[in-house]
Design a protein around this nucleic acid. Structure first.
Lengths: 114, 114
DNA sequence: AATTTATATGAATATAAATTCATATAAAGG
DNA sequence: CCTTTATATGAATTTATATTCATATAAATT
């Protein structure tokens, strides 16, 4: 695989690897929301949300359009949705076996014994 | 979406959001490789590879089995492959429009003017 | 059982990313 | 055109992640 593709993959996964951004994307699955709505619904700091949205925008994961005073954010395309869904598949698969929490608990046990 | 699912998603995407780990996973798509093979092929530090493999193992993205002196690593399941493929779809979609590099160049231009 | 080879781990340091705070911009409404 | 409201940005700080180095472990070979 070419290096620039790896870099692009890294970029997009890095973006998705953040709770705040995931939560925002998850919200935007539903419909478009304005920044202030996002802030209110997800109870996050204005500046933090704005910074995160900027990153998502730059990576073309979300799009904006102005509506009066507000700026509406929505998902750019269905690829992102598919990506999230597939990740969910994997996650539920992993969760069925054992949760990350259980795993970490086991690790702690091992360390005590060892 | 439940919080623990978001956390799991975060965990997996965070893992995938790293060039070294992506490159390792990409290699393991082909077949199983021993740690020393991975080190040689990808020209990475032994310790770095070992640390990354540990993370991938803990997240159940890869599995191991001993073969004589060596330890073979392979992908755990097809979910990971699907995930990578979907991400690639998105990436090629984004790359068609414009590369990240071009985008950043544009941003720089904007900043000069503004 | 001592040595070699392959891999893993811990801890320190370096680097990158997130958060916060202050401030800027830009459109809308008076 | 001045003020308010909504959002964005820059820079400093905090926090998380990666890298490196030294060392540990564990199986295989002698």
């Amino acid at each position: 695989m070419k290096k620039d593709v790896i870099i692009e993959l890294e970029t997009i996964f890095k973006l998705l690897g953040n709770r705040q951004r995931l939560t925002i994307l998850e919200l935007l699955r539903e419909r478009a929301y304005s920044v202030s709505e996002i802030i209110a619904i997800l109870d996050m700091e204005q500046s933090a949300v704005s910074h995160q949205l900027k990153l998502l925008r730059e990576a073309q994961l979300v799009q904006t359009k102005r509506q009066g005073r507000e700026i509406l954010y929505c998902l750019s395309d269905s690829h992102v949705l598919t990506l999230l869904d597939n990740a969910l598949n994997h996650v539920s698969h992993v969760l069925k076996k054992e949760t990350h929490e259980e795993f970490l608990a086991e690790e702690r046990e091992k360390n005590k014994k060892g």
